[in-house]
Design a protein around this nucleic acid. Sequence first.
DNA 1: TGCGGACGTGTTCAGCCGAACACATCGTAG
DNA 2: CTACGATGTGTTCGGCTGAACACGTCCGCA
Lengths: 202, 202
Amino acid sequence: MLTEKQEAILDFVRAIQAERGIPPSTRDIQRQFGYASQNAAMNHLRALAKKGVIEQIDGRTWGLKARLVQAHLFTVPVYGSIPAGRPTAEEQSAEETLQLDPSLFGLPARAANRLWALRVRGDSMTGAHILDGDLALLERREPRAGDIIAALVNGTETTLKRLLYRGRAAILHAENPRYADIVPESGLECQGVLVGLIRRTT
Amino acid sequence: MLTEKQEAILDFVRAIQAERGIPPSTRDIQRQFGYASQNAAMNHLRALAKKGVIEQIDGRTWGLKARLVQAHLFTVPVYGSIPAGRPTAEEQSAEETLQLDPSLFGLPARAANRLWALRVRGDSMTGAHILDGDLALLERREPRAGDIIAALVNGTETTLKRLLYRGRAAILHAENPRYADIVPESGLECQGVLVGLIRRTT
DNA sequence: TGCGGACGTGTTCAGCCGAACACATCGTAG
DNA sequence: CTACGATGTGTTCGGCTGAACACGTCCGCA
């Protein structure tokens, strides 16, 4: 979605805006990244705006929408079940959105735009103490063996499974003996790695 | 403290800043109040700054210092283990504090000062899918049968147990067969009822 | 081989911004 | 009566800002 540079710029804008309320000017960005020209920053801001993550607040100043800045909160989209395709930052398809303090899960600020949440359905992960109705917090990143990941199976729906390797073959293991392991035929599509869990018990 | 005009200006600044994140310029204020001179606004801003309700955010822009806009977040104290006595609102003894959105757990605003959190130790509640290291969110209120509660046993430490009744006698049931039920001798001291759970998996 | 996108330099320009200075009015406290 | 603070007007200035234009590099893709 975002290039590496664009993400760096976005992080900087977010940091400044969270700290002092006002986003950095193009020349602030220029200085921060050592650009010789103000236009380098301008180009990135325009690119970020085209991708919808920032906007021009008062017709001049480039910054994040006010709601996304509040204190040091992340705004995380919550999905019920994910239709085919990767969950992107398009929040249109998100059921709702939720605000949480990243320090709760020990997440660095730059994880902000890689986070999303999934409302867990079914009992396939009860062995890992993840229940129906729980809210799984996921980060879009490369999974490691043993991670619990949200994976796209059958190209239709996203499910939570533990990623294991049998030799070189990846298998998706349900933490419930009533469910069989899934062996992805073609490439494995990982949409996120579990980093946190939120449960409502009332 | 503030004059009538100053209060009007302050309200306007607050409104604009809440809406778009960036406070109005002196000329915005001038237009809003129909001043013929920008200096009228400047004078008021300087007066407000002298009284401490406003400051210069980035060396130029005048705006509110406090983030009075901050969503509807609860500040919840987090305890490791609770020493004897009831966990009160004194946050001095809290290990840390945590900010969360009450809507995450479907809690009404008036629950704010009844909430606290406990860092779970031990495996006595794994049957209820509550693990060592989890953060249990609790509300101080009268428990009902079947609730998972934080109870003070032996007058020394707080543990999480399920509250059951055998006839009229209350028993504290660990959701783990390796732990025996506890039958409180004297009155049962309930410090909170489990309303939510937060787990960090990384 | 050519095209376009990401990325970056160098420069100029019009507009907005805070700041300052000079000055006026009014009511109130000493 | 005087001094002062609150409230304004009118004007000017230097600095910062976003925007635009021209130009250049690198890399992947058709």
